[in-house]
Design a protein around this nucleic acid. Structure first.
Length: 514
RNA sequence: GGCCCGUUCGUCUAGGGGUUAGGACGCAUCCCUUUCACGGAUGAAACACGGGUUCGAUUCCCGUACGGGCUACCA
């Protein structure tokens, strides 16, 4: 059962600004958001920028903009709201000395220690252990006995090293052979023997905390009630539990929920930037200034944020009924961790497109016309709003994206310059030409010129005068051999344009008759 | 390798000691549409394997296999 006590629910999404926020991160943020909203809680954005070497310019802004586009806005944190727990960037929180304080508390109680080992010494230790066929070389309850740290050095030696400003880290002193257990909301009880956990670095030699210390401190300070994060954190969770315990904060420890990962559609492993089978990895275009790489986003690919979010929500979660198209409010109302799957979910590009199609169909013709107008403006094409609305109405059933309406309905915006060659070659002959020319006269007499009367004319003509080759007629008037109902196309085009196009086609093509 | 997590149609999933194992995407066939990428109908398609427990296991337990994650002074 999900633990929701009398305390106000406060959750956080805590990405590190090491790159653009990808869809896996968005889903983590989404689940946090849904849970918070469901329980009238707070959703906080905290930036975990403790690794200065991996900081990527623009990443933080990107995260904020991406969350906004997705409609999963935090009500507190970097770029959002005016929460009372500022600052929300760990690099800024460091100056208050808070991480140092907590680390000192752990040292004072004997649960952490200074380690002065250099990179070379650590490397040598690992080599030694590997040579001795130790399966997993770790800085742990055994190896720390042979390293340079405040457990092996005398008080005076340690003090001297400290005074001499010799670089050091602070490590968690993980005990030998103790059972660590915690109840994950999604996975249930997890039991790990402490001997398998290494002495995690809590404070780095540059004075910055590692994730392990920083998130524990901040989650306590920010009164976080539920930590909802990816499964990749499960292995280090026991160390975090230990940290809370040694800090005497066992009873304030947030509930833990580890989400299943999003996997590659084919092949194996975590979803990566290059294996989304043609669909984007990022919510919006992302340009990595450091690597120069440019990634296209869902937004720019023509996805609706609602569809993107809907798809993401159903990757590893289900609403408990067979409903698949769910509004944000429905997602909120139905959300619960009990319905989150334990196994990883493979990303399905086809279904992702299907979701967009569902949302496209829900939009009325005027909403679609406005979106189509944006595309046309980019291409310097002007069109009447009502005309566009009619085009959208007719084309929407066939489209996955608004841009499909434009691409599949080119003939609504341009006069055909070429005609589907296969059709012409096969069907353009004197007999058909004569039929079409006669039909033209009938169409000219059709008044009013709407799809019903046009259909009537075509039908009567076919029955009484001559068999119309509709594919040919379509090709002559639109240039292409497929599309929506001809009568509807003619109605939207209008009598004048329709007739002019067919006449022009006849002129252009006559010489080609063999 | 070690530790942890997992395993229902190709994919996302429902279900759960006795079911014709349900839905969705995709796929196939048919109908409709005088075209079609819409719609409708139908179909093919799954409980990883081996042991228990049980009158009965896909469901519970244990193994095995397979998959995934982690194994940094990264998060």
């Amino acid at each position: 059962m999900t633990q929701v006590s009398n305390k106000k629910v406060r959750v956080r999404f805590a990405p590190s600004p090491t790159g653009g926020l990808h869809m896996g991160g968005v889903r983590t943020a989404l689940f946090n958001y849904l849970f918070a909203k469901k329980h009238n809680g707070d959703f906080i954005l905290r930036i975990e920028d403790t690794d200065q070497t991996r900081y990527v310019k623009g990443a933080e802004e990107y995260i904020i903009e991406a969350l906004k586009w997705c409609g999963i806005e935090p009500n507190e944190g970097v770029g959002f709201g005016n929460g009372t727990h500022a600052p929300y960037r760990q690099s800024e929180r460091k100056s208050s000395g808070i991480y140092w304080e907590y680390a000192q508390k752990l040292i004072a109680s004997g649960h952490a220690y200074y380690a002065f080992d250099t990179e070379q010494e650590l490397e040598a230790m690992r080599k030694r252990l590997e040579a001795a066929k130790v399966a997993a070389p770790q800085y742990n309850h055994i190896t720390r006995e042979h390293m340079r740290n405040s457990l092996t050095l005398s008080h005076t030696e340690v003090q001297k090293l400290l005074d001499d400003k010799v670089p050091f880290v602070i490590r968690l002193k993980v005990p030998r052979n103790e059972e660590i257990r915690f109840n994950d909301i999604i996975r249930g009880w997890i039991v790990v023997n402490s001997s398998t956990i290494d002495d995690k670095v809590l404070l780095k030699s540059d004075g910055m905390p590692t994730y392990h210390l920083a998130h524990v401190v901040d989650d306590i300070e920010m009164q976080i009630t539920h930590v909802v994060r990816g499964e990749e954190w499960l292995p280090s969770a026991p160390a975090h539990v230990l940290t809370y315990k040694y800090l005497g904060l066992e009873n304030n420890m947030p509930n833990l929920a580890h989400l299943p990962l999003i996997l590659k559609p084919d092949g194996k492993g975590k979803l990566s930037k290059r294996d989304t089978s043609g669909l984007p990895m990022f919510p919006m275009n992302w340009h990595d200034e450091r690597t120069g790489e440019h990634y296209i986003g869902y937004k720019e690919s023509g996805f609706f944020p609602e569809a993107f979010i809907n798809m993401l929500a159903l990757l590893g979660w289900n609403p408990g009924n067979n409903q698949e198209v769910l509004s944000k409010q429905e997602l909120i109302d139905l959300f619960s961790f009990e319905k989150v799957h334990k196994a990883g979910a493979k990303f399905d590009p086809e279904k992702t497109k299907w979701f967009n199609q569902q949302y496209l169909r829900k939009k009325d013709k005027h909403q679609l016309a406005a979106l189509l107008q944006e595309i046309l403006i980019e291409k310097n094409i002007t069109a009447d709003t009502e005309y566009l609305a009619n085009v959208c109405e007719l084309m929407k059933e066939k489209a996955y994206f608004v841009k499909d309406i434009f691409e599949m309905g080119q003939f609504f915006f341009f006069e055909p310059q070429t005609y589907d060659e296969k059709i012409i070659q096969k069907k353009w002959n004197h007999d058909n030409k004569k039929i079409i020319e006669t039909l033209l006269e009938q169409l000219n007499l059709t008044t009013p010129f709407n799809h019903e009367t046009i259909h009537q004319t075509l039908d009567n003509f076919s029955k009484n005068t001559g068999k119309i080759d509709f594919q040919l007629l379509r090709t002559l008037s639109t240039g292409v051999s497929s599309g929506p109902s001809l009568a509807h196309i003619f109605e939207i085009l209008g009598k004048e344009k329709t007739l002019a196009r067919i006449k022009k086609a006849i002129q252009t093509l006559t010489i080609n008759i063999s």
